[in-house]
Design a protein around this nucleic acid. Structure first.
Lengths: 211, 211
DNA sequence: GTATTTTTGTTAAAAAATTCACATTGTGAA
DNA sequence: TTCACAATGTGAATTTTTTAACAAAAATAC
């Protein structure tokens, strides 16, 4: 199964989420075109992705929901789970914590960091908030592998450096500032402003076409 | 200049942001490799994107920062700007409002919507919060073109339907639930859980490679 | 004034991602 | 039984995106 395309990885995560819902509803099998419909993609794409992970459905019955959930888990999850920290307990940081709260998943948010003394020492939705100064210690003690960067833009670069020094393995940067990391740290950046500008562009385009 | 690739649109938005910073610092020209460095991409890619929008730099001097900012604006912005609404004034919604607060941009968040009576009628970071029931009216009155969906997952689909009925032209869905819209509405979905799972996957992969 | 360097612009090649097209085969209907 | 249908699985083609390669030309060095 060598190298899965990046896009396939993303879709697998989404398939699993959709499948979990189906499973809860008691659906035991699902067709590729049903999955496709939910995700707004084509059935071929779904089948191709599943082919890449070596999963085989049943002709005329589709895919076994439970089996597929488990297989996707084997592929994308770490066996023992991974610990995650949120750096920056502002609105965005808290939003992320709430997203995850209660989800039994292999990914667990175990710590938050902030500079605000009012937040440090408290717990938010079950996640303890520490001082950024203690990052190296906390990361080590809790075996934290991934950091989600949700600090104000001005602090993004310095904070990313701290994370790297603390020995983090992956960074998800939600600030609008690109950061630099050594190549052994996996970096994913996502910029909400860019996405909104993109939507705006296509809305504009559509309005222009109408004229 | 016909059809710009999707990825190019995204990068243009990012280039502009980087360029604005350079401009503030008084830098008048910039090389393709400087832009590339900031965005973690190659210089060829930058040049290719600029070629696609028909911008020409100066040999040995690079690109004129101000000119390029303006040109990108002409391409991706709507001339008169676009009004945006946030649907769901929770942590994520407020985070987005704060991101945009103070930015003089062609995109303006002019309204927020929520179901919580404590929030309705108040203003958050300058953005008035209305009842979701008044959506159609407010969208029309304020000429709102884009809606950012930040409601709880369970309400995503129903709220998206409301937005469509209200006549919105583009939806940016930040809930983990895919929604359906008619084809004349531009839809962009972004799922934080998927992104985090992707980071986790590549961190796992890296750890496995080390062994 | 000539050579060297550096940077742009672009054609062509490569790589990544998606879609087409269709063989295959269980299933149910006639 | 035989036929038609509906689904999977996948090689081949297509499309999209990125990268390589290099000509052209301005600036600098000598």
């Amino acid at each position: 199964m060598k190298h899965l395309p990046h896009k396939t990885i993303e879709r697998l995560s989404q398939y699993r989420r959709a499948l979990l819902l189906c499973h809860e509803k008691g659906k035991s099998h699902i067709y590729s075109h049903e999955i496709a419909k939910i995700q707004h993609i084509t059935a071929v794409q779904v089948r191709r992705d599943l082919m890449l992970i070596g999963y085989t459905g049943t002709l005329r019955k589709g895919y076994n929901v439970k089996e597929l959930i488990d297989l996707i888990g084997i592929i994308i999850d770490s066996e023992d789970g991974l610990h995650v920290a949120i750096i920056g307990m502002g609105n965005l940081g808290r939003a992320l914590i709430n997203y995850f709260a209660g989800k039994r998943s292999k990914l667990k948010i175990v710590a938050g960091f902030d500079t605000n003394p009012d937040k440090i020492g408290n717990t938010m939705s079950g996640v303890p908030c520490y001082s950024i100064e203690d990052m190296a210690k906390i990361v080590l003690e809790n075996d934290i592998k991934i950091g989600i960067l949700t600090v104000p833009a001005d602090h993004a670069i310095a904070t990313a450096d701290l994370l790297v020094k603390a020995g983090i393995k992956g960074i998800l940067n939600y600030t609008p500032k690109p950061v630099n990391v050594p190549k052994e740290v996996y970096l994913e950046e996502y910029d909400m402003i860019t996405t909104l500008e993109k939507v705006a562009f296509y809305v504009k385009l559509q309005e222009m076409d109408e004229e």
